[in-house]
Write a protein that binds this DNA or RNA. Structure first.
Length: 734
DNA sequence: GTAGGGTTAG
């Protein structure tokens, strides 16, 4: 696309490409708000030559400079040369070339030397805003107004209360204080008032409007401290967008942000999960030269990108940081965890330990524990536990809770219970994690026992606790108990059922075969049923082979999400299980047309501190030959035990032998074979699987546990199965 | 005078 030279502000593309192509859809990637911020800060600025050189000398780096196309001769013959150009700061977007300075540009155009020789005095410019002259300023104001009144559609997001609002100070107290200041004439003292605004703004989101009232009715202009305080208040409130609007107002009034402003702004972008907005803020950070010198801002950026799912950018920035402290490392570790890159999180942790200047702290370990629990890496988790004890670090309630969760998620419920008993201080989360752990292990009676203990300790169950309690009932087939808890949670404990609780109930009824009741419940709930909720019923339809209802449910799901892979696969599986191969073909063809691929089954197994991943049919592991031999051996021994592969769920109209072949390559079987080869006789095998265990693998695992005399623990996406001596802890109810 | 990283379900 041909871009105009100095475009009208109303046009989307205001820049000339100066030799480097700007992607035509560049501005499409921006949300409206980001665009406002971006435009406000990156428009065509008129610099005089002094200012230009000033910027260059300050080391300001730009990724692009777009100059008015005057010829060199014309430029040099001007009496008072004015260069109009647009700057785009260094910016981590793939299409952008790496940074270069104005000096580079001038050198390439052969005028740098000449301007240097002209001895232009470096005088007037005090700061960047002094020398910027934003053209089209009034138009910008109009556009800002439009954004403010139109609003951006964040209203449906709810935000948890922030940890920053620890004080529950009643607004009345602040009003009294305010009145006192007025009476004593202290409102003239900008420092005192600043403190008041800051305190009120951060005390409680509910007090923000009062803080704003003080802030807006001052007899003198607020200082940057007050602006920051207000922005901080909004950044941590349920309306973080206000922080950015306030920032725009601040800029309109001619204030420059300082180093304190940016962490608050990035916090707001983080809350809004708006990548484009943060990109805009990042641009401003660079413009003000903070990117390379402020560790707080750098960490805020790392954290922001990581939270918004751009962990690669976070890593890029992290690697480029001049200063890194424990918080920066923690932000990166958490970023990897949030993005599901657990092994990377652990790699970063290991690299961190090699650093003599960085000391691991509780938050680091929390991140690592989280990664381990997702990976099912029990040994690594135990190592963290030992590390805490060895380093005499205090086992805080948070860390204890995370570790209990880890043990439970890694299949070691005994270790979880032991640790739970040792921890003195417990809150509702500690209890909930314990109850949840017992629930997924199918230990419903024990879970309910802990629920009573918890109440005896004076702690009331919350919404999450009840999710676990209902799930415990569901896994154990305790329908009556589940229904009872569902009733009393709102009646007695004032916990209103959420869609998750309804999901548990659908699951509970569905598993128990009460499909009509489950469907009835879905029709009665006060929420719009979502894909997850229908999904629970769909699983039940498959288990109980109700083709008619299953078909209806899958179609409902596809109405909500036409690309829902699970619904397609279940539909195909349902047809396959009753031999309706034409319908199977139809579903598979429509999947092909829509470009949907079934996510492959994947199993993880930890060996000597390393996690090995196996994908169904995977032949890429370096021990593949040995694994295949072991699989043959398993098949031989199992057939001696009378095992006949259950091929019903296989969604292909292929011959029986091929079906058996497909089954034998399920990821958990590969992982078990690998485990059997590489561990000593009697060592338990712990496997984490991303999907549900299929019927054939389930019965095979029972027999493998018997024939090889091993405890096999498999965590699938819904619960644990402990296979031992030919039986499974789920009692075949899953 | 102000700042960055934090635990439970789905």
């Amino acid at each position: 696309m041909e871009l105009s030279l100095f475009g009208d502000l109303n046009q989307r593309n205001v820049v000339n490409s100066g030799g480097y192509p700007i992607p035509a859809n560049f501005f499409d990637a921006f949300s409206e708000m980001a665009r406002q911020i971006w435009l406000l800060h990156h428009l065509t600025f008129s610099f005089d030559l002094e200012a230009l050189i000033f910027e260059v000398k300050k080391g300001c780096r730009f990724s692009k400079v777009y100059m008015e196309s005057v010829t060199e001769d014309a430029f040099l013959s001007m009496e008072n040369p004015q260069v109009s150009f647009t700057v785009v700061p260094r910016f981590p977007i793939a299409n952008f070339k790496s940074a270069f300075t104005l000096e580079d540009l001038f050198l390439t155009q052969g005028i740098c030397e000449k301007t240097r020789n002209s001895n232009v005095p470096m005088s007037k410019a005090e700061n960047i805003t002094d020398i910027f002259e934003i053209s089209g300023y009034l138009k910008m104001l109009q556009r800002l107004e439009a954004v403010k009144t139109r609003g951006v559609s964040y209203s449906n997001i709810t935000f948890p209360p922030s940890k920053h609002f620890t004080s529950s100070s009643n607004v009345i107290n602040f009003k009294q204080l305010h009145a006192k200041l007025i009476r004593n004439g202290d409102m003239e003292n900008i420092l005192t008032v600043g403190k008041l605004v800051a305190d009120v703004a951060i005390s409680n989101p509910a007090n923000l409007s009062y803080a704003r009232l003080i802030f807006s009715n001052l007899k003198y202009p607020p200082n940057i401290f007050m602006w920051n305080s207000m922005i901080r208040g909004y950044a941590h409130s349920s309306t973080p967008k206000e922080a950015l609007i306030l920032f725009l107002e601040m800029r309109e009034k001619g204030y420059s942000p300082n180093n304190y402003t940016f962490p608050f702004l990035l916090k707001a972008c983080n809350q809004l999960m708006d990548l484009n907005l943060g990109l805009g803020i990042h641009g401003i950070v660079i413009k003000y030269g903070f990117e390379d010198c402020d560790v707080f801002i750098q960490t805020s950026l790392v954290n922001f990108y990581a939270s918004c799912g751009s962990v690669q950018i976070a890593r890029l920035l992290f690697d480029r940081c001049l200063q890194r402290d424990v918080t920066s490392w923690n932000a990166l570790i958490k970023g990897y965890v949030r993005s599901g890159r657990y092994m990377d999180a652990i790699r970063v942790f290991r690299a961190m330990q090699d650093r003599v200047d960085i000391e691991v702290d509780e938050i680091t370990l929390l991140g690592v524990v989280l990664a381990c629990s997702q990976l099912g890496a029990l040994e690594m988790g135990r190592w963290v536990h030992a590390y805490i004890e060895k380093s005499r670090m205090e086992m805080s309630m948070n860390l204890g809770t995370a570790l209990i969760d880890l043990y439970a998620r890694c299949g070691s419920i005994d270790l979880a219970v032991n640790l739970f008993k040792k921890i003195r201080e417990k809150d509702v989360r500690t209890w909930s994690v314990m109850i949840g752990g017992l629930a997924v292990h199918g230990l419903a009676k024990e879970a309910l026992g802990f629920l009573s203990d918890m109440q005896r300790d004076g702690i009331d169950p919350d919404s999450v606790t009840f999710t676990h309690v209902l799930r415990a009932c569901s896994h154990a087939g305790m329908v009556a108990e589940g229904l009872r808890f569902f009733d009393i949670m709102s009646e007695v404990y004032n916990v209103e059922p959420t869609i998750e609780h309804y999901g548990c109930m659908v699951d509970l009824l569905g598993r128990a075969g009460c499909l009509d009741e489950a469907l009835g419940l879905i029709k009665r709930i006060p929420y719009k049923p979502d894909v997850v909720l229908w999904g629970s019923l769909l699983v039940a339809c498959r288990t109980h082979k109700n083709v008619v209802m299953g078909e209806m449910v899958a179609k409902e799901m596809l109405k909500l999400d036409p690309n829902h892979c699970g619904a397609h696969v279940f539909l195909s599986n349902i047809y396959a299980s009753v031999g309706q191969w034409c319908e199977v073909d139809e579903v598979r063809n429509s999947m092909k047309e829509l470009g949907i691929k079934k996510s492959p089954g994947s199993s993880l197994i930890e060996l000597d501190g390393d996690v090995h991943e196996f994908v169904a049919g995977d032949q890429s592991h370096h021990q593949t030959n040995k694994i295949n031999m072991m699989l043959d051996e398993i098949a031989r021994l199992l057939s001696l035990e009378g095992h006949v592969p259950t091929v019903k769920g296989i969604p292909y109209d292929i011959d029986e032998e091929e079906k058996e072949q497909a089954l034998s390559q399920h990821s958990e079987k590969l992982a078990v074979a690998f485990g059997l080869i590489n561990t000593k006789q009697g060592t338990p095998l712990r496997i984490v699987k991303n999907l549900r265990v299929c019927e054939d693998c389930h019965s095979a695992m029972k027999l493998i546990s018997k024939v090889f005399n091993r405890l096999i623990v498999i965590r699938d996406c819904s619960r644990f199965h402990h296979f031992s001596g030919g039986l499974c802890s789920c009692k075949d109810y899953w």
